[in-house]
C-alpha cells in the first residue's frame, strides 16, 4: 500500500516505541519481526515478486473482503506494513542494513469501508446492491430448506416466477388436559375444545403419566404463506385414584381384609383397572403382606404389561365383638412380641 499523502512513516528506534503515539490520529506501531517472512518471500526477492506475494495475501486478507474478522484485519496490518517497507527500495535497503526497524504507520480501522458499511451511511450502498430483505431471507432459507430435512421452522416456498414468497411455520400452542387415573392407565380418546371453536380428538395412550406432553403435529397456530401449522402441545395431568397408585407400569393397591380372611385364607375379589378379579389370600396373611397379580398392571403399547401389587391391611370388626374379646382374654398366645426388630 502506498502511504497516503500527508501520512508520516514512523521510523521507530527499538526501545522507543512510545514515540509511536500521535495526538489526533490513532496510529499503532507494531513491530514486525521480519517483513520478508510476513510476505513469504526471500531476502533476494525482486520488486515484482514482492508485489505478487503482497497482492496474493491482500486478496485473501483485505478487511473489506472479510467484514467481521478481527484476524483478517490484524493479518492485513502485518502484510501491508511489510509491503510498505519492502516496496520502497530506499526503505528496504535501510532495513536490510539494519538502520531501521520494521514498523510503519498503519491505517485506522475507521478508514476501512467495513467500519461504515453496516451503519446508516452504508445503507445506500446496501440498497444499491438491489437487495431486498425478503430476498435475503428467501435465498438463505430456500438453501437451508434444500439441504435439511425440511422439518419445519422457517421455510420459503417458490411462488410464481422468480418471486419467492415468505413462508413460515405457525407457532406451537400449549394446552392442558386432565384425565382420570383409569383413562391414563388404559388409554382413552379425549375431545379437546379450542377457544376458536375447533375440537380435536386426542388419543391419550395407555400408560400416560402426569406431566406427559402429547405433541399433535400441525394442530397449533396456522402458518403464513402456506407454511405448515405449528404443533399443539398438550400437557396431561392424571387425577389421583382413591384406591390405585402407580409405580411405572405397576399398579399398587392397599386392600382391607378381615381377620378371618387373613388368618384362615380364602378367595376374595380384588379391584383392578380392568375390573374385579378373584384372588386367593393365603392362610396366615398379615397387614403388609404383599401379593401380586401378574400382568394386571398398565400395558403401554409395545411394552410388557406391569403387575398389580396388593398390600393387605387386616381389619378388626368395626364394632368390638364380645365373643372375640372373651376368646382373646383366654387365648394362651395372647401375649406376643410385634415391636422388637
Amino acid at each position: 500500500m502506498r502511504p497516503e499523502p500527508g501520512a508520516r512513516i514512523l521510523l521507530v528506534i527499538p526501545g522507543l516505541a512510545a514515540s509511536c503515539g500521535e495526538a489526533g490520529w490513532q496510529r499503532y506501531c507494531r513491530a514486525m519481526n521480519d517483513p520478508y517472512k510476513t510476505l513469504g518471500v526471500s531476502k533476494t526477492a525482486s520488486a515484482d515478486e514482492i508485489k505478487k506475494a503482497y497482492r496474493k495475501l491482500a486478496k485473501q486478507h483485505h478487511p473489506d473482503l472479510n467484514p467481521g474478522s478481527a484476524a483478517a484485519a490484524s493479518k492485513f496490518k502485518d502484510i501491508s506494513g511489510a509491503y510498505d517497507l519492502l516496496s520502497d527500495a530506499d526503505k528496504r535497503g535501510r532495513f536490510d542494513r539494519g538502520e531501521i526497524d520494521a514498523s510503519g504507520q498503519e491505517r485506522a480501522d475507521s478508514s476501512f469501508y467495513r467500519s461504515h458499511a453496516g451503519g446508516p451511511q452504508g445503507a445506500r450502498y446496501r440498497a444499491n446492491a438491489g437487495f431486498d430483505p425478503s430476498d435475503l431471507f428467501a435465498d438463505m432459507f430456500a438453501r437451508a430448506g434444500q439441504g435439511g430435512g425440511g422439518g419445519g421452522g422457517f421455510g420459503f416456498g417458490r411462488g410464481g416466477g422468480d418471486f419467492q414468497e415468505f413462508r413460515m411455520r405457525g407457532s406451537d400452542q400449549s394446552y392442558t388436559l386432565t384425565v382420570d387415573f383409569i383413562e391414563a392407565a388404559k388409554g382413552a380418546q379425549k375431545r379437546l375444545s379450542f377457544p376458536d371453536g375447533r375440537t380435536l380428538d386426542v388419543n391419550v395412550p395407555a400408560g400416560t403419566e402426569t406431566r406427559t406432553v402429547l405433541r399433535l403435529r400441525n394442530q397449533g397456530q396456522p402458518g403464513t404463506g402456506g407454511g405448515p401449522a405449528g404443533d399443539a402441545l398438550i400437557e396431561v395431568t392424571v387425577e389421583p385414584h382413591p384406591l390405585f397408585r402407580r409405580e411405572g407400569n405397576n399398579v399398587l393397591v392397599e386392600l382391607p381384609v378381615t381377620l378371618t380372611e387373613a388368618l384362615l385364607g380364602g378367595k376374595i375379589n380384588v379391584p383392578t383397572i380392568d375390573g374385579p378379579v378373584s384372588m386367593t389370600v393365603p392362610a396366615g396373611s398379615n397387614t403388609g403382606t404383599r401379593l401380586r397379580l401378574r400382568g394386571r398392571g398398565v400395558a403401554p403399547k409395545g411394552a410388557a404389561a406391569g403387575d398389580q401389587y396388593i398390600t393387605l391391611k387386616v381389619m378388626l370388626p368395626k364394632e368390638p365383638d364380645a365373643a372375640l374379646s372373651d376368646f382373646i382374654k383366654t387365648w394362651p398366645g395372647r401375649e406376643y412380641d410385634v415391636r422388637s426388630a
Binding site: M1, R2, Y54, R55, A58, K59, H62, D64, S80, R107, S110, S111, F112, Y113, S115, H116, A117, G119, Q121, G122, Y125
Partner: peptide, 20 residues
C-alpha cells in the same frame, strides 16, 4: 463525501491498486 464514501473510495483504491 461523508466518512462512508471516503472509506469506500479507499476500498476501491485498495482493490484497484493492491488487489489488481
Amino acid at each position: 463525501f461523508d466518512d462512508a464514501d471516503r472509506a469506500r473510495i479507499r476500498m476501491i483504491l485498495d482493490f484497484h491498486r493492491d488487489l489488481a
